[in-house]
Amino acid sequence: MSSGRTRERAKPFGSGGPLVYLLALMAVIVTLGPVVYGALGGFRSNEQLASDPSGLPDPWVWSNYQHVLTNAEFWQYALNSTIVAVVTTVVAVLFGVMAAYPLARYRFRGREPLFMVFVLGLLFPAAVAIIPLFILVTRDLGMGNTYWGVALPQAAFALPLTVVILRPFLMAMPRELEEAALIDGASRIGIFWRLAVPLSAPALVTVGVLAFVASWNAYLLPLLLLQDDMRTLPLGVADYSSEHSSDTAGVLAFTTLAMIPALLLFLAMQRRIVSGLQGAVKG
């Protein structure tokens, strides 16, 4: 510290002492404990779980996971979740980037009020409209228990965040590119498809991942709209847990396997999710 200009100057706060590592370790244990418990619990028998709830598998039991993986319902739920999430994501991102484009690149009267419509949309939680939404989808539109019946409302509720995140990205697009394209005779719609969409691809992935994860994890809307073999994974997990409440090990195996897709997606897309959330907060 005393010898001025060496690197030490920046260091003292940088590295942590043993106490810091101890606290970090505690945070890790508390965070991962329940997840690890679920995963390990799936490798134990119900007798093992009953005699010592917090022990390790001894011996390791593979049958719980085997049962889930050979359970046609599990795969059906996973397929349903995937289809609903993909449709939600495609609709939200496509409609979102289309709406964000003029809000970012055109100058017209009423632009800011129009943008405010989307900002206000952030304040409408699905819970507020859930009962009329249920009636609308099942009775008026006849889309109860269909993929579209869940995906379209989910996309609609994902749109505000999508537009709010995308607009600044599109605004940052250099004007020179657009002007060059205009001089070359491109139409505005051509510029949108061939310039704006490719240039904002990273932001599109961000909002896409956010919409996908929200749909994948959604519970309330699917709970009201989907039954039987149309159910998504969260519904499947909840129902399996209450139907097989005596088979704790089976429930844990089912739940663990249902976690995996979201975790993998998170690990693959971590930086995008993080930057998207940060953008949403700053934006």
Binding site: M98, A99, P132, L133, F157, I189
Partner: peptide, 24 residues
């Protein structure tokens, strides 16, 4: 052009956000 870009999003929100809220 603006209408072309904005209408899908606004229509979707009108049907699945605004209308249910008004119905509530």
């Amino acid at each position: 052009e603006i209408a072309f870009f904005v209408t899908p999003a606004l229509a979707l929100m009108a049907v699945f956000v605004v209308w249910p809220v008004v119905s509530a």
